[in-house]
Amino acid sequence: MTNFMSQWVYTPVVKDHFMNPRNTLKEDEQFDYDGIGDVGSLACGDQMQILIKVKDDRILDLRWLTYGCASAIASTSMMSEMAIGLTLEEAYHLTPAMITDALGGLPEHKFHCSVLGDKALRAAIDDYLEKQGRENPFKKHVAKVICECKSVTDVQIEDL
């Protein structure tokens, strides 16, 4: 029986990112971003905002905020670490599967939570390109994701 006693539903990595989320926007922090992405709605229970600084088409720095569950917090935190330093193109092609892999997995019914940060990141890149007045070269390569938590199925996420 005792071997059940220390189990946690989430992997140690998820737990670490949930407990110590990286790159969150601090309350008093002044972060001059070049692109901003907002997805979700309070009505569906999750909301995500991502701010990016871009230099030479690379993500120089990133901050995020969320009203979301533990999985959303952990996956966005992980995503933020993975995204910093990537080119815009690489960042655009980060997938929820890559993020959950890096986390060592999420409980099955929580996979969809990793979509949120990923989607907000793309929205931020879109916003950056739009502000620059540039055409968005990535959009057509990426399947459209609908993020209403409940309508995103695991299969859809696998497909990403």
Binding site: C44, G45, C69, C149, K150
Partner: peptide, 16 residues
């Protein structure tokens, strides 16, 4: 699994 709002609170007219 997914974050559903409490139906009890919604039924009581509590904000979503």
């Amino acid at each position: 699994g997914s974050l559903e709002p409490s139906y009890v609170l919604l039924a009581s007219g509590v904000d979503i």
